[in-house]
Structure formats: C-alpha cells, structure tokens
Simulated assay, not measured.
Amino acid sequence: MATFRLLVMLLATLLVVDYMPAPVASATRPTGPWTITALGDSVTAGSACDCRPFTDLYADLTRERTGVPVTSRNLGVPGQTSDGVLATLNGDSETAWQVADSDIVLVTIGANDLAGSLADWQDGGCDLGCFRREMPGIQADVTAIVERIRELRAGQPTEVLVTDYWNVFRDGDQAASLGTAYRTISRQVTALANAAICAGAASEAATCVDLVGPFTADPTKYLAADGDHPDAAGHAEIAEALATHGWHELTSA
C-alpha cells in the first residue's frame, strides 16, 4: 500500500510539472555597452569648427537618455564622397571591422559628389540638369553603403542612421553674398540630393534623419564662418536630430 501511494504521488508530481506553463521571457532593454561609428565627410569630421563634432555629442545624448554605456568612433574624412565611403567599406579591413563591431552606424555623405557640377555651373557650363544626372549615382552608393553595413553586421540588431543635408553647398549669409541665383540652385540641388540620399537609405531599411528642419529658421546661426560647415550650435542640432529618432532597433524586444 505504501508503495502504491508513493507511485500515485510521483505520478501527480509529473503531471503538474508537465502542465505547468512555460515562463514568458520578459522584454528587457539591452545593457550594452554600445559602440557608435560615424562614416562621412567633413561634416562628420567636424571641419571648420573648433568644437566637439556631432558624433561625440550624440554619444553623450545616447548615454544620458538610455543609461547604456557608449563608446564612439569618428571615421569622417574631409572631401569624402559616397563612392569613397563604399570603397573604404569594401576594401579597408580595419574600417570594415570597426563597422562590424558597431551597434549604431551614422552616415553623412553625398555633398562632395556634387562639387564638380557646382564648379561647372559657376563657370556657366551647367544647369540643373547637370546636377540631376548625379542623383542616381548618389542614391545607388547610399543603398550599397547601407547594404554593406548590414552585411558586416551579419543580422545583429543595428541602428543605421543616414542624415540628409540642410544644404549641400554654402548657406546663410555666405550664400546670400553669392547672389540670388546661387541660393536658388543650392536649394534646388539640396532637395534633389536629399531625396536621393533618403531613397537610398530607405531601400535598405535605414532611417533618414532630416537636417533641413533644424537649420531652416536661421542657417547662419548654425554655421561656421565659411557658411559650409556646422559650428558648435550646428553640431548640437545634428546630435539632437539623431537622438530624437530614438534607439528602436536596439531597444525593441
């Protein structure tokens, strides 16, 4: 009889264990640390501004608003073009390794692709059509850059933020000093370039972060003396625009 009771108790225990619901995994925010890598041109590099570039400021905001430890790398190169960034990602093993090790990748590129056409326009040998012909190449390069970033990250959660430009040429008081025609063409070309950049980013599910809005009210306030690069206030605006997007790809369950 004792043996029978023991068997019954053992069977009941097994049944309870068998029908206990599986625990539900709770959604927890990653604790990091996160690594940020910025690719781009002189804007990313912080040229013409004796200040902390937006990459560093964005890292500060990320740390403050998420509580996650953050490190950042700034790989911005003055004069860099979109095909130059792509070539570096494909051919420079150190850059590729750094991107592969990054949870957040920032990309600001495309304005320098238009320098030749701007020179032709200023010499009177180019109209808006010259600039239009550059746009498919910029879009294709941005698409390929984001695609390469995804490939290097090998399916890991990654925040890829591609910025557009407030202006691909000079803006504010500097642009005004160059005349109405310059201001008009710069705004037209900027709209075309931003559309190409954002289309390239969207094609690979990257976020395109708008920089036109933050600079619109008073571009001069956010620009260095050359009218081409951000000053300290401009870099702060860029960092805030990036941070306002959030960190959804890294914090979603």
Results as ranks from 00 to 15, higher is better:
167 N>E: 08
108 T>L: 06
221 K>S: 14
244 T>G: 03
66 T>G: 04
68 V>M: 03
19 Y>H: 14
3 T>M: 10
183 R>K: 10
6 L>T: 12
7 L>A: 14
80 Q>S: 02
244 T>S: 12
34 W>Q: 00
237 E>F: 04
6 L>F: 12
138 I>D: 09
11 L>K: 04
94 E>M: 10
206 A>T: 02
49 C>E: 02
199 A>D: 15
74 N>A: 01
208 C>F: 06
140 A>P: 10
97 W>P: 05
85 V>D: 00
232 A>T: 11
132 R>M: 04
125 G>E: 15
127 D>Q: 10
42 S>V: 02
31 T>E: 15
39 L>C: 04
120 D>S: 13
100 A>M: 06
130 C>D: 09
217 A>Y: 07
14 L>C: 12
167 N>Y: 02
251 T>F: 01
84 G>V: 03
32 G>K: 04
208 C>E: 09
151 E>G: 10
44 T>Y: 07
220 T>P: 06
178 L>H: 10
231 D>V: 06
171 D>Y: 04
28 T>K: 11
223 L>A: 08
84 G>S: 00
78 P>D: 05
75 L>W: 01
73 R>G: 06
26 S>I: 08
104 I>A: 09
229 H>A: 10
47 S>L: 08
201 A>I: 03
206 A>P: 08
93 S>L: 10
221 K>W: 05
146 V>W: 08
125 G>R: 13
214 P>I: 11
230 P>S: 11
100 A>K: 06
103 D>E: 15
224 A>W: 04
223 L>Q: 05
